[in-house]
């Protein structure tokens, strides 16, 4: 499938932004009384990333001026549900942040609701892809789970970085939580890759054409000498041959390097810089992972072209 830059950016950044919102939703439960600056920066970063991602997702639309129409079909469409949930999440979390920052009234229940909404939003993002039966690699229960786990891992790492920037040290508890979230997310993702490699194609050129009853079928002549929308959109295979290397790179940047950096930062007070690097590395790893998510996926329609 064609890996559109705007969609890669959208899923990675809004995923991490919503992940940070999920953690902030539970933040009223801690005993610490955070400063206004602390809250403004935390909520600010979470909203900025989530909104930047959502805005970016409209860039690949043919008619972005009609994007509001996508909020109407939540009863049947996952893409519509994702849009509606994102708006709801931002509204509830916005109210929660507003009351806390400006009126010093942290309302735990509102935080919980915004956290649950953010979780469901990320799940809906994953379901946009997981619902597509024609793309078997995506059409699995584990796909939205991966999206959820990556969102939490990204949010955890962002939370850790901001914490260190404010208090000089990240603390061993938060560091451990962030590392566990990273390990779990990437472990599930690696399982997703391995199980994905073993998928037996549901449709073949024989079943697509119905000619399998006669014999082995292959494309003799394309319908046209040039390319077309379907081949560009569904037949993307550039750098698929580098997939294995890119998987290693994404795990290295997304998980291994951030964990090493967290461990370096742990005993080093006032060294939040390590964690800033950890976040940058993680995001680079995530962008690679998301690029592969699209580039490696094969679509059933290509059986008509082979």
């Amino acid at each position: 499938m064609h890996p559109a830059a705007s969609v890669i950016f959208f899923t990675v950044f809004s995923g991490a932004g919503f992940g940070l919102l999920i953690l902030m939703g539970f933040a009223t439960g801690s005993n610490a009384t955070p400063s206004t600056a602390f809250l403004v920066v935390h909520f600010g970063l979470a909203f900025a990333m989530a909104v930047a991602g959502l805005v970016s997702s409209t860039f690949h639309l043919g008619h972005p001026e009609r994007a509001w129409r996508a909020l109407t079909q939540w009863r049947s469409s996952w893409l519509s549900r994702e849009g509606v949930l994102a708006v709801l999440t931002l509204a509830v979390a916005g109210l929660y942040a507003l009351l806390w920052v400006f009126f010093d009234k942290p309302i735990g229940l509102l935080g919980w609701i915004s956290a649950v909404l953010a979780l469901v939003t990320v799940y809906a993002t994953g379901m946009i892809y997981a619902q597509i039966k024609a793309v078997q690699l995506w059409n699995r229960t584990l796909t939205p789970i991966c999206y959820l786990l990556f969102s939490l891992a990204g949010g955890g790492l962002l939370f850790l970085m901001l914490h260190a920037l404010f208090f000089g040290s990240a603390g061993s508890l938060l560091s451990s939580v962030a590392m566990v979230l990273l390990v779990v997310a990437w472990a599930v993702k690696i399982f997703w890759w391995i199980s994905g490699d073993r998928i037996v194609p549901l449709s073949t050129t024989e079943s697509a054409t119905g000619l399998g009853k006669i014999g082995k079928t292959r494309l003799f002549e394309q319908p046209h000498t040039g390319s077309n929308y379907l081949m560009n959109e569904m037949g993307h295979h550039i750098a698929r041959k580098h997939a294995t290397k890119l998987r290693w790179i994404s795990v290295g940047l997304g998980a291994v390097l951030p964990i090493i950096l967290i461990l370096i930062a742990l005993p080093a007070p006032a060294d939040a810089l390590w964690l800033v690097l950890a976040v940058i590395s993680h995001m680079a790893g995530m962008l690679t992972e998301r690029w592969l998510f699209f580039a490696e996926a094969k679509h059933a329609v290509m059986t008509f072209y082979t």
């Binding site: 499938m1 690949h60 639309l61 043919g62 008619h63 972005p64 009609r66 994007a67 129409r69 996508a70 893409l79 946009i128 619902q131 597509i132 039966k133 024609a134 793309v135 449709s203 697509a208 077309n228 929308y229 379907l230 959109e233 569904m234 679509h299 059933a300 329609v301 008509f304």
Partner: peptide, 23 residues
């Protein structure tokens, strides 16, 4: 009403839908 998101073309296993390059 079409926003040109292309998701329907992805959902179709037959490649029956094509986004118009101009419109």
């Amino acid at each position: 009403s079409c926003i040109g998101c292309g998701l329907c073309a992805w959902a179709c296993p037959y490649g029956a839908r094509e986004m118009d390059g101009a419109e």
